[in-house]
């Protein structure tokens, strides 16, 4: 039972990052393989302003969000968009975002050093007892935030005019531009928000484990896995995927040891992709001829 609770909470963190994959995939059909580095970027940006006593904590968290968001939008415009021009099968963006990941990771390591740094921004200490499992309040906040942000994104896309534009671009970018909607602007905006979310996750995560350049890299594979299991086309996907992945990997590692935890999670990805390539909640792409 304890494993299940911890798994759900852990799944929340993955879900938050998975949400940023889903967001960029819906609007641009691309994934940013450098998401892990944006997590670290957000965390270090918040540390950089942690000594500004005039800035209240929400402001410092916002700095973490904005730093990652702005860099994210720039990366989209200059390093993703140019590599998506050759149609559906053009996956050069995949290589370019991997390269961005290398450059950012290396740069952050050189600037900040490889060892973890303490981060006090938005730290909440103490644990709560849930069904017999001691859960850190910080992790609980992260998981709660993942749920809140997912619901917020769903409401925004379903109920607002911005969301309408996003759904239009997602379904048919060419026709969307006939309606005066710029697919590029929508794409840049979703990179802004998606990478901002990664930065936000970084600030909160760093408060528990400390900020280190590789802090996001370890989350990357798990959060891609969560996004894929849930379905890259669905904003509900990360919540379901996060819960499944978190619980499965925790239970497996409790039962058989740590190595099996991750193995079980990744095997879940393979099983889902084989059975339902579009993910559990994903929609099959219409075949065009």
């Amino acid at each position: 039972m304890e494993a299940v609770v911890i798994g759900l909470v852990l799944g929340g963190l993955y879900a938050l990052l998975a949400q940023s994959f889903v967001l960029t995939f819906i609007t641009t059909r691309t994934l940013n393989f450098a998401v892990g580095e944006f997590v670290a970027l957000g965390a270090f940006a918040a540390i950089a302003v942690s000594s500004w006593s005039w800035l209240p904590t929400p402001g410092k968290v916002a700095v973490g969000f904005l730093a990652a968001a702005v860099v994210g939008a720039l990366v989209y415009r200059f390093l993703v968009l140019p590599f998506t021009t050759q149609g559906e099968h053009d996956v050069r963006w995949l290589l370019s975002t991997v390269a961005v990941s290398f450059v950012m990771l290396n740069l952050i390591t050189n600037v900040e050093g490889p060892s973890p740094q303490r981060s006090d921004t938005a730290r909440i200490s103490g644990t709560v007892d849930i069904l017999g499992a001691g859960v850190g309040k910080q992790q609980l906040v992260l998981a709660g935030l993942a749920v809140v942000i997912s619901l917020l994104l769903i409401v925004v896309t379903q109920r607002t005019s911005v969301g309408l534009m996003m759904r239009a671009v997602s379904q048919d970018p060419d026709t969307a531009s006939l309606m005066g909607v710029s697919p590029r602007a929508v794409g840049a905006a979703s990179y802004f928000v998606a990478m901002g979310l990664a930065g936000l996750a970084g600030v909160l995560y760093a408060a528990t484990v400390g900020a280190s350049p590789v802090m996001g890299e370890t989350l990357l594979v798990a959060s891609i896995a969560v996004a894929i299991v849930g379905g890259l086309g669905s904003l509900w996907g990360p919540l379901l995927g996060g819960a499944l992945y978190g619980v499965l990997s925790q239970v497996a590692s409790y039962q058989w040891g740590a190595i099996w935890g991750e193995t079980a999670g990744l095997l879940l990805v393979i099983v889902v992709l084989v059975a339902k390539p579009e993910g559990l909640l994903g929609r099959r792409m219409e075949v065009k001829l």
Binding site: R92, V103, L105
Partner: peptide
């Protein structure tokens, strides 16, 4: 002194340059 790229970063840059 601190804002520089070493091996893996330079390989990343090389990758981007190749793509461009």
């Amino acid at each position: 002194e601190s804002w520089f790229l070493s091996t893996s970063g330079l390989v990343g840059v090389l990758f981007l340059l190749t793509l461009f």
